[in-house]
Amino acid sequence: MASRTITLTVDGVSYTDDVEPRLLLVQYLREVLGKTGTLVGCDTTNCGACTVLVDGESIKSCTMLAVEADGHEVTTIEGLATDGQLHPLQKAFNECHALQCGFCTSGMIMQSVSLLAENSRPTDQEVREGLEGNLCRCTGYQNIVAAVQQAAGEGAAR
């Protein structure tokens, strides 16, 4: 099957690569670019571990082909901190103990970024509903909700 050439921006850097059409965006990020901060937890679009931003909005990168990202801008957990400064959500996840094993964390933080972009001061229930596409097996979610609220309070959505 014919490969396709794609050009896209990932974490602020432009890349051009030939990829097989069947290659998933998450596989492109991990296997071609070596951006292993984005993780794969399932194969049915349930767990959200692979969540990244495409043009500023969250998507599950296991449920998008790399070829579909041609011409778009992708942000992963590895591109979230700017100038060595942690994003307020990254800081809040640490301070609120919102992660244990860390496997859901990249996706959870990226979804939280998207959530706060759409609703800068959510209620706890809105935070929970905004994270419904992300599974965590360690935390029981309580500290994740607290972390999102802490970041919202610090104006993370700005």
């Binding site: 292993t36 992963t76 957990i77 590895e78 990254q90 640490n94 301070e95 992660l99 990249s106």
Partner: peptide, 20 residues
């Protein structure tokens, strides 16, 4: 606050499948 978090919140994780 946990020491372990620094790499996990920035995507510098070292899960087995990350190995090449």
């Amino acid at each position: 606050a946990r020491k372990e978090d620094a790499r996990l919140i920035t995507g510098r994780s070292r899960y087995t499948d990350n190995m090449v």
